[in-house]
Simulated assay, not measured.
Amino acid sequence: MSTDQEQTTTSLTFPSDAIETALDELPPGTITDAAESYARECGTILDGHYYSSGRSPSGLAAATIYLSSLVANQPAHRGSSRTLSQDEAANYCGVSPVTVRQHYRKILDLHEESPDVNLHGKSDERESTPNAAPTNGDLP
Rank of each mutant, 00 (worst) to 15 (best):
A34E: 11
I31R: 10
E25Y: 11
Y51H: 09
G43M: 06
P27D: 03
T21S: 07
H49Y: 07
G29R: 15
S37P: 02
P28E: 13
H49R: 12
T32G: 10
Y38R: 14
F14H: 11
A34N: 13
L26S: 05
Y38T: 09
P28Y: 09
D33V: 07
E20N: 14
A35I: 08
L26H: 07
T32L: 04
D24I: 09
Y50H: 13
T32D: 08
T32P: 01
G48Q: 07
G48M: 04
D33F: 07
A39H: 03
E36A: 15
A22L: 08
E36N: 10
C42S: 08
I45L: 03
E41V: 02
R40T: 08
A34K: 14
D47Q: 12
E36L: 10
Y38I: 02
A39R: 03
D24T: 11
H49S: 08
D33I: 05
H49C: 05
A39S: 04
E41K: 15
I45Q: 01
P15C: 06
R40N: 05
S37W: 12
I19Y: 01
G29F: 15
E36P: 08
Y50R: 13
E36T: 12
A35H: 13
A34H: 12
E36K: 15
L46N: 00
E20G: 12
E41F: 14
Y51N: 07
E25V: 08
Y38A: 07
E41A: 14
P15E: 01
A34G: 12
T21Q: 13
I31T: 09
I19M: 05
G48Y: 03
G29K: 15
T21K: 12
D24W: 11
P27V: 02
P28M: 07
